Amino acid sequence: MITLFDLPSTVGTWSPNVWRTRYTLDYKNIPYKVEWVEYPDIAPTLQSHNIGPGGRKPDGSPYYSVPAIIDVDDETGKVKKALADSVEIAKYLDEAYPDTPKVLPDDEKELESVVGFANGLMRLWVPVFMIVCKAMLPQLHPPSREFFSRVRAKDAQQLYPGYETLEDIPFSKEDKEAAWKAFKESFTKGLAAHENLVQGKWFLGEGRIGFADFVIGGVLLWLETVFGEESEEWKDMSQWDGGRWEKFIDGLKEYQKA
């Protein structure tokens, strides 16, 4: 049985990165259970399961993050694999469960394109990232809320120096409108570079659903969850590019079992 580590909130699962792995598991129809981990507990929890860091912080210290999984043999109780990072998890699941539909392509150029897309998509939401974080803050549980607030304020020191918490960082109505406009331009321009998406297909083409689509779906679900299905932000975004993204997320709903 696979255990998936996820971040809790008052609105359920929300992390765009964890959604990548949830989609992957549900698409493959692999049974799993969820262990909820508050932000301050991520590093000690993963370390206790011998799951290494997913990367390094700017100061060189290890960065522990979710999604992470443990795959335990049901008969022996032995751990078959314990790892973090959504791309690495997808690679492992494709190899360890060959009788399930693959989410990553075999072709090296296509694989490079998918992984590059997954790693680069975060740049598209930079204009609105801090606003989304502020909107998410009250929906986190108290142990995570304080941790998240201070860490994200520290991350934003270059743009917003002198603030110790997210709550302290001011955003006027004009600031939010400008950020949302910049995000729309960034998002649509970034995805317009991929011909299949422009044509309303999956990232790798018609009938070839896969990991890159789960990356997009994770972002869309993140924003819908944070702002709310009836919010002005989500209603606006779902209609961008002729309503393409509302159709896109609808096409993934059968793999959205959380």
Score class of each variant (00 low, 15 high):
Val79Asn: 00
Pro16Cys: 03
Leu223Gln: 07
His194Met: 11
Ile30Ser: 11
Phe187Thr: 08
Glu110Lys: 14
Leu93Pro: 12
Tyr27Phe: 07
Ser86Gln: 06
Lys173Thr: 10
Gln239Arg: 01
Phe248Ile: 13
Gly207Asn: 12
Pro44Ile: 15
Cys133His: 05
Lys109Pro: 07
Glu232Tyr: 00
Lys181Arg: 08
Lys57Val: 00
Asp155Asn: 13
Gly251Phe: 01
Val18Lys: 00
Phe147Met: 12
Gln199Ile: 13
Tyr92Lys: 14
Tyr255Val: 10
Ser9Phe: 10
Gln157Arg: 08
Lys154Asn: 05
Ile69Thr: 08
Glu246Thr: 02
Val126Met: 15
Glu164Tyr: 02
Pro62Ile: 09
Glu35Lys: 09
Tyr255Ala: 10
Thr13Asp: 01
Leu252Phe: 02
His194Thr: 07
Val114Ala: 03
Gly242His: 08
Lys189Arg: 15
Gln199Glu: 12
Leu140Arg: 01
Gly242Tyr: 02
Glu167Ser: 05
Asp74Ile: 06
Cys133Val: 04
Gly55Ala: 03
Ala178Cys: 01
Trp234Pro: 02
Asp236Gly: 00
Thr3Val: 00
Pro143Met: 05
Leu121Tyr: 10
Lys154Met: 09
Lys80Met: 10
Glu229Leu: 13
Pro31Ile: 13
Met130Pro: 02
His49Tyr: 11
Tyr255Asp: 06
Gln47Ile: 11
Asp59Arg: 05
Glu95Lys: 13
Gly120Val: 07
Phe214Asn: 13
Thr10Ile: 05
Leu93Asp: 12
Gly243Cys: 09
Ser65Leu: 09
Ser172Phe: 05
Glu246Ala: 09
Ser238Asp: 03
His141Pro: 00
Asp236Pro: 02
His194Trp: 14
Leu121Gly: 12
Asp99Asn: 08
Pro62Arg: 04
Arg152Lys: 11
Tyr39Leu: 15
Arg152Cys: 14
Asp85Met: 07
Glu195Val: 07
Asp175Tyr: 01
Pro161Gln: 01
Trp36Met: 08
Thr13Met: 02
Pro143Trp: 05
Asp85Ala: 12
Thr225Met: 10
Met1Val: 03
Lys57Met: 01
Lys253Tyr: 13
Leu159Phe: 08
Val126Gln: 14
Phe147Ser: 07
Thr10Tyr: 02
Pro105Lys: 05
Asp73Thr: 11
Asn119Met: 12
Gly190Thr: 08
Gly228Leu: 05
Val215Gly: 05
